[in-house]
Simulated assay, not measured.
Amino acid sequence: MALTFAATPRAHRPDVTPRPAGRRGRALRRNLTGWGFAGPATLIVVGLSLFPAVWAFFISRTKWNGIAPATDVGWRNYERIAQDPDAAAAAQHTLVLTVLFVPASILLGILIAVALNQRIRLIGFYRTCIFVPYVASAAATGILAGFVFNPQFGAANETLRRLGLPAQQFLESPSQALLVVCLIALWGEVGFCAVVYLAALQDIPKELVEAAVVDGASRWRVFLHITLPELRPVTVFTAIWQTITAMQLFDLIYTTTRGGPMNSTQTVVYYIYELAFETQRLGYGAAVAYLLFAVTMLLTLAVVGYSRRSGSEAF
C-alpha cells in the first residue's frame, strides 16, 4: 500500500540574523566611546601644533617685532633669505653637521647593537648604560660637555697631556667647535639608534642565520648577506629620524657655544632663535622656519620614496 505524505507548511521561525541597522548602531557607539576618551587629548595636540603653525605662516608674511602692529610685506621675507649671508652660513653649518652626524650615528648604532645582542654576563647593565645618555637632559649633557672640553681645566685636554699630545681649544676654536658639537650629539643620540637596531636584530628569524651557518657561511658573510638586508627598513627610519634631529639641533648649541665662536656653530634653528627672540624680527624668523620645514619635509619624502622603490619600506 502506497503511503502518501501531505505537505505541511513549515512553522514560521523568527529571523535571528542581526539587522544591519543594529550593527551600525553598536559600531557608532563604540566609535563615540573611543572618541570620548581620545577626543580631548586630540584637540589639545591639534591646538598646540596646527594652530601655531598656521599662525606662524601668517607672521612670516609680515614685518613684526612682537609689540608694534604688524606690517604686511607679502613674500618679501622669503625673497630676502636667498640674499642673506648669515642664513647661507647657518645652512652650511647645518648641512655639515647632518652629513657628519647621521652616518656616524647609524654606523655606531649598528655596531653597538650587534655587541649588545650577544649572550654575555651583565648584558642588561650594558644596555642600560648605552641608553642612559639618550634619556638624560640634552641641556645637562651640553653643560657637562662644556666642562669636559674646557681648554684650561677640562678632562679632554688633561687626557691629551697625559698622552703627550698638544692641548686643543675644542669649543673655543672656530675649526673644531662644530666637530665637538657633533661628537657631543653622538654621545646623546647613539643610544636611540642602538636600541632600535637591537630590537630589529632580535626580530630576525633565527632559521635564516642557522641555515647560513650550516651552509658554511662565516659570521661576516651572515652579517653582510642576512643581517644588513633585514635591517634596511630600520635604517630608513633611523636615517630620517636622525636627519630631523640634526637639522633641528638647538639645545646642545645653546648650552655649549651659543652659535660661536665667530658663528662657526650657528645652525639654522639657532639662527631662527636669534632672529625671533634676540633681534625681535619675528616675521623674518618665521619665514626661515618655514623654509627649514619645507626642506625637512622634502628630504623625508625623498628618502621614503626611494626606500619604497628599493623595497625597503619602513612606513
Rank of each mutant, 00 (worst) to 15 (best):
V190F: 13
G191P: 05
G191I: 03
G191A: 08
F192K: 06
C193S: 14
C193R: 00
A194G: 02
A194N: 00
V195A: 14
V196Y: 06
L198M: 11
D203G: 11
P205I: 01
L208A: 11
L208D: 10
L208W: 08
A211E: 09
A211V: 05
A211D: 09
A211M: 06
A212F: 01
V213R: 15
V213E: 14
V214I: 15
D215Q: 03
G216Q: 09
A217D: 14
A217C: 14
S218T: 15
R221F: 05
F223E: 05
I226V: 15
T227M: 06
L228A: 12
L228N: 03
L231K: 08
P233D: 11
V234D: 05
V236D: 11
V236C: 14
V236E: 12
F237C: 08
W241C: 07
Q242H: 10
T243G: 12
T243H: 06
M247R: 07
Q248M: 06
F250E: 08
D251V: 13
L252W: 07
I253S: 08
I253R: 05
I253A: 05
Y254N: 14
Y254P: 01
Y254G: 02
R258G: 14
P261C: 03
P261Q: 04
S264W: 05
S264E: 07
T267N: 11
V268Y: 01
V269T: 13
Y271G: 02
Y273V: 02
Y273K: 02
Y273T: 08
E274A: 10
E274Y: 04
L275M: 10
L275H: 00
A276Y: 01
A276F: 03
A276I: 09
F277S: 04
E278I: 12
E278P: 02
E278S: 14
T279F: 10
Q280C: 07
R281Y: 09
L282P: 01
L282M: 15
G283H: 04
G283A: 10
Y284G: 06
Y284N: 02
A287R: 01
L291H: 00
L292W: 02
A294P: 03
V295Q: 00
V295Y: 00
T296Q: 09
L298I: 13
L299M: 14
L301V: 10
